[in-house]
């Protein structure tokens, strides 16, 4: 690992100011992606700004129609939160499928979302549940947050403080894990809000996105069979050793069918 300067600010404003004054800084949240990348000498920030000491970015708040998760909330805290399990169980379920137990004990929702790894799980929830991502400066709609491979709407230095998830009537998430890394080859989250369906897909393309074709069909006819009519074109999908674009497109449909079956309690 290349050398770097370490900082542990106590507030968001201090973090942002450290960021602005460094040559090539990066924020450190759970570190589950960043630290392995630095170990392999594939990233060499001059300054690491550790967000773990900032009270503003932690905590879980649950109301009847909204779940607010502080950016520094570790995955296992979402898995084990009784409030989230009660109000938004799909989020706890999804968080429980991320990485492995040790990773879930360190990794944070803010770090995962800010990274926009195309095969991460949380982005499916941000998109599929229509979450709002809050930073120190503004709020960003989940639909507009993920721009591309490892690219988000965040400006340099912008810090996610928390994410608000609206509570759907019901929702389900299905994941096809990469057999080696256990990242999502494809993950599909389907949620129903007062008669409107949202479908969030991760793993398939360069970043998480909605499956509008599926949404249209399901808004008309909320049955598993209705999904059969939906074409999932593989153009622009990822392709690697474990799954070609064509296979991924197929898996999007299969995972969507399974998620919908779960949602419908079938």
């Amino acid at each position: 690992m290349y050398p770097f300067n370490y900082h542990k600010p106590a507030s968001v404003s201090e973090a942002v100011s450290l960021f602005r004054n460094a040559d090539d800084p990066m924020y450190l949240s759970g570190g589950m992606t960043l630290i392995p990348t630095m170990k392999q000498r594939l990233a060499a920030p001059t300054d690491l700004i550790d967000l773990s000491g900032i009270p503003e970015v932690s905590g879980i708040e649950v109301s009847a129609d909204r779940v607010r998760v502080g950016a520094f909330t570790r995955h296992n805290d979402v898995v084990r939160s009784p409030e989230i399990n009660k109000t938004l169980p799909v989020l706890s379920h999804l968080a429980g499928l991320i990485g492995d137990n040790q990773v879930r004990n360190r990794g944070t929702i803010g770090g995962s979302v800010a990274n926009s790894d195309p095969s991460a799980d949380y982005p499916a929830a941000v998109v599929g549940l229509g979450a709002t991502v809050y930073t120190q400066d503004r709020s960003i709609s989940g639909d507009e947050f993920f721009l591309n491979l490892f690219e988000t709407a965040l400006h340099p230095g912008e810090i996610i403080t928390h994410i608000d998830f609206p509570v759907p009537t019901r929702a389900a998430y299905q994941k096809f894990p990469n057999p080696a890394s256990r990242y999502a080859v494809v993950g599909v989250l389907i949620a129903e809000f007062a008669g409107t369906i949202r479908v969030g897909v991760t793993g398939a393309g360069p970043c998480a996105c909605r499956a509008s074709g599926m949404e249209e069909v399901l808004n008309q006819n909320l049955t598993v069979a209705a999904l059969d009519a939906v074409e999932v074109p593989d153009a622009g999908f990822n392709s690697d050793l474990h799954a070609s674009a064509e296979y991924r497109a197929h898996l999007v449909k299969v995972m969507a069918r399974r998620a919908l079956a779960d949602l419908l309690g079938q």
Binding site: Y6, L28, G31, M32, I35, P36, D50, V103, N105, R106
Partner: peptide
């Protein structure tokens, strides 16, 4: 794997300053 404040973590993915 070791325990950090009672939770299992991978000690190869935790920095000393943390």
């Amino acid at each position: 794997t070791v325990h950090l404040d009672g939770r299992a973590v991978k000690s190869c993915t935790v920095l000393a300053p943390q």
